[in-house]
Design a protein around this nucleic acid. Structure first.
Lengths: 344, 344
DNA sequence: CTGTTAGCGCCTTCAT
DNA sequence: ATGAAGGCGCTAACAG
């Protein structure tokens, strides 16, 4: 049985009758190499199928071409779409992505971050984050750039890529109000997430502008993961507690869960209850669903993260670490059938 | 401005008044270390927050704790669910996952594999693969274990995790036949994928067993990505060409696209056309969709991949590389509303 | 333009 | 039970 040892730079050097530094130079496209030598080496590299060891390279350069994507759950189509944008841009620049699904569990988050730091990832994208300062401090200590997507924290520094969530919440609620709704449930809010607060603020302001009194009982804070079942269950609850004719949910998955709960209780959508979601995940466009929602340019947001990280990683090292970026995209109301027409 | 150098094993050694080898030993839980020394070192490690450099470790051990998940598109919920299963199991064993979305494009696939090999990943999961032998040869040459999920190749060796796709295709078609359908379109087939061939074979056999003649014109091979739009477009075509009362699509996304196309052409589902999908992605259960489909235990399949890889990576090195595993799960028919009831 | 030297941070014999 | 030395594969000064 033959031993298949991995080729090293030294063997290439020997084959080409040069030193390994010379090979290293052509491998890294450095100048000051004789054109003949360069070609000869490149040819050999190609012929024998030599592939530089990225691990060894990382060790000496102190840098890796690996990024991390920290998310609540990659099964949520919103995150998957952001991830794809990031991944595509990353691939163009020669970076690869490690995915970490935390289920919004601080311990899992810690575990993952620890692993990522051990592997000296070049940058981290947070699409979900516990808000735990200690974790961010660790990352900062390791001098690793990071960016929040669709997340923002007043107390925690960092680049971020967002949409105007306030405006999104406003548009969603305003749409329902225009259709004649007065008792509008909001599935969202809570205190941990700036994104949620902003959406809720938009909801409140739209009510106010329309002269509708804010009613605390119509606001249900989501606890736990932002998934379908969560929306389903919370809606089951509020259907027993309150009367209302419309729902604005903080994301599409929750909205869909709410929809299912309404149907199960004999409510018709949109005749009895109108629903607006948030994110505009692909499925909301399906004809028998047709959920009205707020669009976020998810793919583009993912790409933008890569741009930001790339600049931080490779950019001029003038310490501009203090000037954090805040990229804000514009939300758009996507009107579909789940709200029906003007009533009463 | 303070320089924040990363702590190294040597500094820990100095703090503990021992040599770095001793520190290394306790870090790796090796025996033959004085219990006092061990505790002292562990305490220091904890106190100063030292984190071993995984890159350096990988370089010397020649192994990494990084796996790769190669898929067509992570936005496809089927893949996302498999990925989550893999990721969860991986996290339990201290592995992390790099995701690679290839869009079933050989060049992208090559590019990614190249990157993965350069980084010496410990193992690869293919959820989508071009069938390119050369690529597999490279991987084998690097001695990296890999497993195919939901894919199987006669000519290409490797472990695989599958369902009985033939049976899945049979169940789907049989269901339609039982409901009285005779002209059943199949969106699938083609020659590249064993999985597709098997599903189609099930389709054919079910027809045969029911005494229905196989009609080539009712079979449309999917080209391109297995996504919603692809299903939509191909269905638009066949609606113009043929008469039929039912569709069996090779996956749910295609089925959903077909559904949308039918609606657009004024067909009602299930009254005019019955539809069966494949995979049982979460969204098919939504009440206003309720797509009849074939369930695959996606999450479990992902977990299984981890088990297989772990054994190959860490297992006893007795060369059992020839005995490839073939794990087969059982598909289940999930009856929902998209097929309606018995007709005529 | 090219070779030599010296590590990157860690693990692993081999002595002691 | 511990330390010293050497090396994983590569890059980066520094000479020449």
């Amino acid at each position: 049985m033959e031993k298949k040892e991995r080729l090293t730079i030294k063997q290439i050097a020997r084959l080409a009758n040069v030193s390994d530094s010379t090979v290293s130079r052509v491998l890294n496209n450095q100048p000051d190499v004789n054109e003949n030598t360069r070609q000869r080496i490149q040819e050999i590299v190609k012929r024998v199928g030599y592939r530089p060891d990225a691990i060894a390279r990382s060790l000496v350069t102190g840098q890796s071409k690996t990024l991390a994507f920290v998310t609540e759950d990659i099964r949520n189509p919103f995150f998957a779409e952001v991830a794809r944008g990031l991944e595509d841009a990353a691939a163009e620049y020669g970076y690869q992505i490690i995915y970490c699904s935390t289920d919004s569990n601080v311990d899992k988050e810690k575990m993952y971050i620890d692993m990522l730091l051990a592997y000296r990832v070049a940058g981290i994208v947070f699409t979900s984050f516990s808000g735990n300062q200690a974790i961010i401090n660790e990352i900062i200590k390791c001098n690793i750039p990071y960016v929040f997507v669709n997340r923002y924290y007043n107390e925690i520094p960092g680049d971020c890529v967002l949409i105007d969530n306030y405006r999104g919440g406003y548009l969603a609620t305003q749409h329902l109000i225009k259709l004649g709704h007065k008792r509008i449930v909001h599935l969202g809010g809570g205190s941990v997430s700036f994104t949620r607060l902003e959406r809720k603020r938009g909801y409140e302001q739209a009510l106010k502008d329309a002269g509708i009194k804010y009613n605390e009982k119509l606001v249900k804070t989501i606890k736990g993961t932002l998934k379908y079942n969560t929306g389903y269950e919370i809606t089951k609850e509020i259907l027993k507690e309150e009367k209302f004719t419309a729902i604005f949910a903080l994301n599409d998955l929750i909205a869909l869960g709410a929809w299912a709960a309404c149907l199960e209780e004999g409510k018709k959508i949109p005749e009895d209850i109108a629903i607006v979601g948030f994110d505009n995940i692909d499925f909301t466009a399906f004809p028998t669903v047709a959920l009205t929602t707020i669009n976020q340019p998810r793919y583009e947001m993912g790409r933008k993260c890569m741009e930001i990280l790339k600049e931080r990683i490779e950019g001029s090292s003038t310490d501009n670490a203090e000037k954090f970026k805040k990229i804000i995209f514009t939300p758009e109301l996507v009107i579909r059938k789940s709200c029906g027409f003007y009533r009463k």
